[in-house]
Structure formats: C-alpha cells, structure tokens
Design a protein around this nucleic acid. Structure first.
Lengths: 119, 119
DNA sequence: ATAGTATATTCGAATATACGGATATTACCG
DNA sequence: CGGTAATATCCGTATATTCGAATATACTAT
C-alpha cells in the first residue's frame, strides 16, 4: 500500500477532519451518480437533471456540496454553467470502493451480479 | 481511469446506494484513523483506545459500523477481540482522497504542509 | 460461582443532512 | 429595458449521525 505522491498520511485531528470532509462527498448515491456522469465530460445542471431524472433543486444542492469541496470546477458558457471534474482521481477512489463492495457481496454469496444496464 | 477488475460501474439506484453506504464508512475522522491504524496490522479495541485517546464506547461504536459493512474482520484471541482489515484496497481509496485533498490545499495556496508529526 | 477485564449496547440530546416545492437570482438576447 | 431560460437558494420537515457516560454482556481464570 503506497501513499500517493510525496506526502505523509493524515496524523493530526485537523487533517483527519479535512480528509473526512472530503470523503463525505462520496457518501451519497446522488453525488456518486453526479461524479460518474462528470467522468464522461463536463455537463450543465439541466443535463444532470435529465440524465438522472432528479429535481433541479436536488441536483443543484449536491453540486454545491461538491463545489464547496473543490471537487468540481465550473465555467459559464452562454447561458449554461458547465461543471467538470477537478480531479479525475476521485473516480479512482470510487472505483476502488465499488470493487471492494462487489467483492464483499461475492464473498457473502450474493453472486457477482453487479451489472444491469437499466440506467 | 480504469474500472477495477471485471465489473461494471454502478448504474442503478440500488447499486449506488450500496456504494454510498460503503463510502459512508470513510466519511468520519475517527473511522479514518481506525482504518489507518489497521493498516499496521490487527489490533484489539483497547489498543485503539490508547493509540487514539478516545473513549472506549466511541471506538466500539465506530468499529461496529465498519463491521456492519464487512470492512473489518474480527477474531477472538484469549480475552481480546482482534480487528483486521478485510480489504487493504480501502486504504488505497483513502490515500487517493488524501492526495486529492492535499492538491486542493496546495492549489488554494495553503501550501503543501500536510505533515506535522504531532500525533 | 466469583472476580476481573474486554467489549458491546443503550440512551437522550445535540448536530447535521436530505428532500423538493416555491421563490429568488443571474445572465443572455432581442 | 423586458422576457425567458438556467441556476441557486430558502424553508420547514424528516431522517440520520455523533457523542460519551452508564450499563450490560461476554469471556477468562481462579
């Protein structure tokens, strides 16, 4: 298990709190969906609303949380505001947790049925 | 960005909820500390209590949450119950998020001061 | 059994988060 | 300007999470 880059691991209370605050962004199914959507390129709010079939207020609220944590960038283009991933590695972290979850399910006998193209 | 192993990404509401439930385990500074402690090998409850200087009830409660998500295994040994990491990749996900956070701080001008051996 | 140690759970109060309709704000364009 | 579309915020309510002292449970050893 290698620590990324040239930094230390979080050893102080304050660092752990920042770390946890960032991870908090991953702890909601809607935000996970938003982040993966952004993996396919920048999108504006209404695209999320349509793609995920969620109320605009809900999308906007969750995007705000990602913004506050600097996980997404925004740029205005015409009358749209485009959101983009600030750091693709976040999807890597999500992928890891997804694999872990999958393996847990397999281990527990719930088969590897992780797919289903219903989206 | 590669999806781990041979599985698909979470496309359904149900999968995203499970995914989020697992990520929820990472969204608390105490649990982050517990997981990193476990990176150094199995420990029993009192070792966490001493290492992290937390009330025993707090440690036990957070360990329970990790247990419920199958992120840790337990085995009794004499009068101790040893906890161990069920999947080391979780630390990889934490490391990624830690790097991301660090880069965000650097980008925002708060320097790369991520260390400090105060623990 | 009894005592002693390790771990888990209960409980009530404080705090945080999620929801989404309604409403505000902002920016673009004629 | 005025209208319109896009996005953000407000608000009350519902639900979830966190805390840690107190208490319960589980096991070991005598």
């Amino acid at each position: 298990m290698q620590v990324q880059g040239n930094m230390k691991r979080p050893n102080t209370q304050e660092l752990r709190e920042m770390h946890a605050t960032l991870c908090q962004a991953l702890a909601d199914p809607t935000r996970i969906a938003l982040l993966y959507e952004l993996g396919n390129g920048p999108k504006h709010v209404n695209e999320f609303v349509n793609a995920l079939n969620l109320p605009q207020a809900t999308v906007s609220r969750h995007l705000k949380m990602l913004r506050e944590r600097s996980l997404v960038n925004t740029r205005r283009e015409g009358s749209y505001i485009y959101y983009s991933l600030a750091d693709e590695r976040v999807l890597g972290a999500l992928d890891i947790m997804f694999s872990v979850k999958n393996d847990i399910l397999v281990r527990q006998g719930n088969l590897a049925k992780t797919s289903s193209q219903t989206d």
